[in-house]
Design a protein around this nucleic acid. Structure first.
Lengths: 243, 243
DNA sequence: CGCTAGATTGATAAAGGTCAATCATTGTGG
DNA sequence: CCACAATGATTGACCTTTATCAATCTAGCG
């Protein structure tokens, strides 16, 4: 990560309960809200990480550049995207707190990562992290669970994208965010309509029409462009899961 | 896996070079064809696995059933799918040799898995595998690389699905298979058109029209319904990567 | 040799993409 | 504090593309 002139990156000291990983493990016990990492594992990770604070819209790394770091998000939203030759942009993932990102392929980053909101990140040197994981089977297993979890989420997103109707795609996206917010019906959409469109494989006009449609039907209600409430959860669920 | 009357499953002894895992690791050296696992790692895995042979169209496990095994494919093609409430079926992945599948979520399988062709599988007891991985950081790291690799592939598929045009989606699918076959321009499509449609989020009619279109344009040539050759790789590449 | 599941082809209608104009919001400088 | 610029969002008209429904065809297989 380049450090620009006006210092968008600040190094901070580690904090209680961080870094965290969110995942549904292979085997029970369930506890969706239970932290995946133990306290001592968090401390072990914190000891080899740098905790940094980054401003909104900051580039974290670029596609195809040499990968030196792996990140765990502690606070804020980050987007990972790929710019296609045509000029079209694909947002492949939004990273929320307790998400890992920056896993390289053959020493290079696969996507470009950029903050959406301001964010707090734990940055790991990739070699140090790999060595730490190899020498601690229990800790590495947590990472294995996490990546598997993200694989399943990616496949779920594929299903969402495969839907033909824009309203359905948007509903699935909102549903993801709802779960992210711990099931609250008040949901924050920090990203732009254009980012949502790039994520859902829609034109931004379609996203706009879809939000409008949900609002008109009385399913959701917007307060400004980035805050919404699901006012008819039953109807919402029906739209979300209708395939 | 239920063992039916006419014995679709046969237990065999391990074979040289198996089980294998295919993945591009985090860091170089590259070598796409290089095996991820060392000989001794393969032997270690073979020692805790059962090698089974299964007939075409055999159900391996069902969605939401208790997960007891993890599988590594050694030979043949397996599909993983989910049946939606509407009756629509989503094929989320085709598993080829050196692919892992059956990674559970909270003790339950996430998809249904079924052989497309006849297949040879290495079956692991999930508890035994987890213990083995936890106690061998190097081996577990190979699995971490593999799952990360599959995560990236899943995201690439999402991009493919996001394309609007049927011909483009099909081209990306054929491109995947081409890479799977080690870059040969002669490609085997063992799955049905209907499976391809479910995988690409298209109607099977659209898949049919798309194959027809590619053939008419002289980009590919079919020999029967399950064998094709890319006769114009330049044109093919153009269609595949046009976004 | 006919039967059956899978595949192809055709006609129609629905849905989103695209282009273009307008509106809203945020941030900036006077 | 306000006016204005600039970016982002919305709306409308039109067009392209695919899903759907229906009929027909083909390849395996008993």
């Amino acid at each position: 990560m380049a450090v620009p002139k006006h210092r968008v990156e600040k190094v901070l000291s580690p904090t209680e309960g961080e870094p965290a990983l969110q995942a549904t493990p292979f085997l029970p016990p369930i506890r969706h809200d239970a932290p995946l990492l133990t306290n001592s594992q968090r401390m072990k990770l914190a000891a080899i990480a740098t905790r940094v604070h980054v401003a909104p819209r900051t580039l974290i790394y670029k596609e195809d550049s040499p990968a030196t770091s792996v990140f765990i998000n502690a606070e804020g939203v980050v987007k990972a995207y790929k710019d296609m030759p045509s000029g079209r942009r694909w947002v492949t993932a939004f990273l929320y707190p307790a998400d890992v990102f920056g896993l390289a392929e053959n020493g290079l980053y696969v996507r470009t990562a950029q903050t959406v909101t301001q964010a707090t990140l734990y940055r790991f040197n990739i070699d140090v992290l790999i060595e730490t994981l190899k020498s601690d089977g229990e800790l590495q297993f947590k990472f294995l669970c996490k990546v598997t979890h993200e694989l399943r989420e990616a496949q779920r997103q594929t299903i969402a994208i495969g839907r033909r109707d824009a309203v359905g795609r948007l509903a699935m996206f909102i549903g993801q965010l709802e779960r992210q917010h711990g099931g609250s019906h008040d949901i924050d959409l920090p990203m732009s309509r254009s980012d949502i469109a790039s994520y859902l494989g829609l034109s931004l006009e379609s996203v706009s029409r879809a939000t409008r449609s949900l609002e008109k039907r009385g399913v959701v209600r917007f307060s400004g462009r980035h805050l919404l409430r699901i006012v008819d959860p039953v109807q919402f669920e029906k739209i979300e899961s209708r395939l």
